[in-house]
């Protein structure tokens, strides 16, 4: 007997055409983690899923088990859209970086409610962020995504010897080591001003919706983003496709 259908909240993170009329969607779901599902007829008719197969939206999806281990996507409903994302390339690009990063670092079929909750907070926070605070919000969200995926970057002590970073000192970040590395241990290719480290810690101490209160200025945020990008490039072996939107 077929297992009963399951309903869960989800973010769509990839859409690929499949066969004559179908699509395979990659969803990050609240209850089943990152999964792939077959959306039958999604290419032939937009009525089939009511135009709900869109990234950057919170969806409610119904899933049925499939013979080959692939889920079959059933009824899909748009639960929340974040209109602020569409009205700014900076906000949309930031949201894309967060979704793509989560898509790349999260393994399949492992429920991760904390990661889902983070995405649920990050998209509305980015949607409402004033332009000057978009990059800081995205950086804070990226660091949280990495931490939840098991890649907590170290900024307060040396990633090699564990020695605490002297307060007020400029530090060197090494993407290969996943954190700052003190001079005796060889340092790293990316310099971070003491203010950038302080800013980064302030960003992480605040909820994503209040990141603007950290008051981290744009040059410091840019340093933090450079360190995150370098780590992601090293870890994934490629840059995020959406990373080009930062420069736009």
């Amino acid at each position: 007997m077929d297992a009963p259908d399951k309903t869960t909240a989800a973010f769509l993170v990839r859409l690929v055409d499949y066969g004559e009329s179908d699509r395979i969607v990659t969803l990050f779901t609240r209850d089943y983690g990152k999964i792939s599902a077959l959306a039958r007829g999604a290419r032939k008719s937009r009525r089939r899923f009511g135009g709900a197969l869109e990234p950057f939206c919170l969806l409610e999806v119904t899933l049925a088990s499939h013979a080959r281990g692939l889920w079959r996507l059933g009824e899909t409903t748009l639960v929340a859209a974040y209109p602020g994302l569409a009205s700014s390339l900076a906000r949309l690009g930031a949201a894309a970086r967060i979704l793509e990063l989560a898509r790349e670092v999260v393994p399949e079929h492992e429920p991760d409610p904390a990661m889902f909750e983070l995405l649920e907070q990050a998209l509305p926070a980015l949607s409402r962020a004033d332009e000057p605070h978009v990059a800081a919000t995205a950086a804070a969200a990226s660091l949280r995504v990495l931490a939840l995926a098991g890649f907590e970057l170290r900024f307060t002590d040396c990633s090699v010897c564990g020695a605490p970073v002297p307060k007020g000192a400029r530090v060197r970040f090494d993407p290969w080591r996943g954190g700052v590395v003190c001079t005796p241990c060889g340092g790293g290719p990316i310099g971070l001003a003491a203010a950038a480290v302080r800013g980064l810690l302030a960003l992480l101490a605040l909820p994503l919706s209040r990141v603007s209160e950290a008051g981290v200025d744009a040059p410091r945020v840019a340093q933090i983003e450079e360190a995150i990008d370098a780590f992601v490039r090293h870890h994934l072996g490629k840059p995020l496709r959406s990373s080009r939107f930062r420069a736009s």
Binding site: G51, E54, P55, F56, C57, A81, Y82, P83, L85, A86, S87, S88, L89, L92
Partner: peptide
């Protein structure tokens, strides 16, 4: 859609 709206805003800009 988000992508269609974003494109519209870029055209406006």
């Amino acid at each position: 859609s988000v992508e269609g709206e974003a494109t519209a805003f870029v055209v406006r800009d």
